[in-house]
Simulated scan of single mutants.
Amino acid sequence: MNPLLSETPACINEQGTWCYQVFQITHNEWLAASAGWLVAKPIKIVLILIVAFLIRLLIRKLIDRISTPRNNGRKLPALLRPLRERAPDLLGATVTERRRQRAKTIGSVLKSVTSFIVFGLAFMQVLAELGINLGPIIASAGIVGVALGFGAQNLVKDFLSGMFMMVEDQYGVGDVIDIGEASGTVEAVGLRITTLRDMKGTVWYVRNGEVLRVGNSSQGYANAVIDVPLSYTADVDRAVVVLKDAASAAVAGEPLSANVLEPPEVLGVEKVTPEGIEIRMTVKTRPGKQWTVQRALRASVIAALEEAGFEPPLGRFLGQGNGTGTAQ
């Protein structure tokens, strides 16, 4: 037998140590000498894990609290207050859903980051308690991270694009957007993909990393544009008066009055075509309501022009303007 193993450990006489406490209970010198590994380190590891779990739990509850809309969604969540808010209150219930989903998504990211950091630090503390050298592990983790980064470039690109889109509030639930390959109403916004439904009812799933430009028709205000064709023989000045009177009467009543922000403006002759001339009229509307206003105004001015005796140009039906609407 190795004589070193038979030596009485000096720590059994040091009061206040784990070695002393274990020896007093068991009267076993080997257990007393191994008290650090058998008792002290396991207790420290358990305490580290408990503290990490409590810290994570408290931070997650705080994130839930600041990311939950109050007053039935009408009050902006505290998480979004430092960030830029582009959603107009004019959109009503749509804004509530947009803010809720935006706060929920950002909160989910913060929770994931919190769990990774807290448990990562706790894991390193546990390894340090076990006497493991962290240098090679950290170096290996860095190499693995670089390899995963190269292998998942598209996923990382989608994730980062989604984060910037959320923080900048480029678009949200209920917005009408054009992203090149697809256009329609946004139904869901995530960190990896955006879901929108076009006018035909088709649902499009677009990766955030593939979105190079976004045209949003639901921010600030929109312009309803109506191009009205007339024949060459029409009295333009009189047609402008008729159009202005008809449009003003239409937007003064329901339901257009709730969607129109400023009185209609007749700009005059916009285009001269082989068939005739086109007079352009615009009106500033609430975001996303330009198409509704266009259709209603087009019907009103058609009836007014016909009643005033104006004839449509050859080969054209009155009111067949391009009907484009642009958001500003």
Rank of each mutant, 00 (worst) to 15 (best):
157 K>D: 10
136 P>I: 02
192 R>L: 10
282 T>F: 02
324 T>Q: 14
62 L>W: 07
134 L>Y: 08
53 F>S: 11
198 D>H: 05
283 V>K: 07
322 N>D: 13
136 P>T: 06
283 V>R: 09
181 E>V: 00
49 L>H: 01
20 Y>R: 11
205 Y>A: 03
207 R>M: 02
121 L>G: 06
35 A>L: 03
89 D>K: 11
42 P>E: 06
299 A>I: 05
179 I>A: 09
76 L>Y: 00
184 G>E: 04
223 N>D: 03
156 V>P: 04
287 P>L: 03
242 V>I: 10
235 D>M: 00
306 E>C: 02
266 V>N: 08
99 R>D: 11
289 K>Y: 15
174 G>L: 01
124 M>R: 09
22 V>R: 09
223 N>I: 11
155 L>W: 08
154 N>G: 12
30 W>K: 10
76 L>D: 08
173 V>E: 02
194 T>K: 03
96 T>I: 15
255 P>Q: 09
221 Y>P: 02
198 D>V: 05
246 A>H: 03
147 A>K: 03
118 V>C: 11
50 I>G: 07
157 K>M: 11
40 A>I: 05
174 G>A: 04
202 T>M: 08
1 M>A: 14
42 P>I: 02
269 V>W: 12
73 G>R: 05
104 K>L: 13
58 L>S: 13
324 T>C: 00
286 R>M: 15
218 S>Q: 04
1 M>G: 15
194 T>M: 05
191 L>Y: 01
234 A>N: 01
301 V>L: 07
13 N>V: 13
174 G>S: 05
302 I>S: 06
236 V>A: 01
182 A>Q: 04
208 N>T: 04
109 V>L: 15
296 A>L: 10
317 F>Y: 10
237 D>I: 02
217 S>E: 07
200 K>T: 07
58 L>Y: 09
51 V>N: 00
79 L>D: 03
206 V>C: 02
193 I>V: 08
309 G>M: 13
93 A>N: 14
82 P>Y: 04
187 E>L: 08
293 V>P: 06
290 Q>E: 15
141 A>C: 12
56 R>T: 12
89 D>M: 11
223 N>R: 08
141 A>N: 13
256 L>C: 01
120 G>N: 10
117 I>G: 10
150 F>I: 14
44 K>Y: 07
290 Q>P: 02
9 P>G: 12
317 F>K: 15
164 F>L: 13
283 V>Y: 06
27 H>D: 04
136 P>D: 10
50 I>V: 12
114 T>N: 14
75 K>A: 15
46 V>Q: 04
220 G>S: 01
300 S>W: 00
94 T>A: 14
187 E>C: 01
212 L>R: 07
250 A>R: 07
15 Q>P: 04
259 N>R: 12
96 T>K: 15
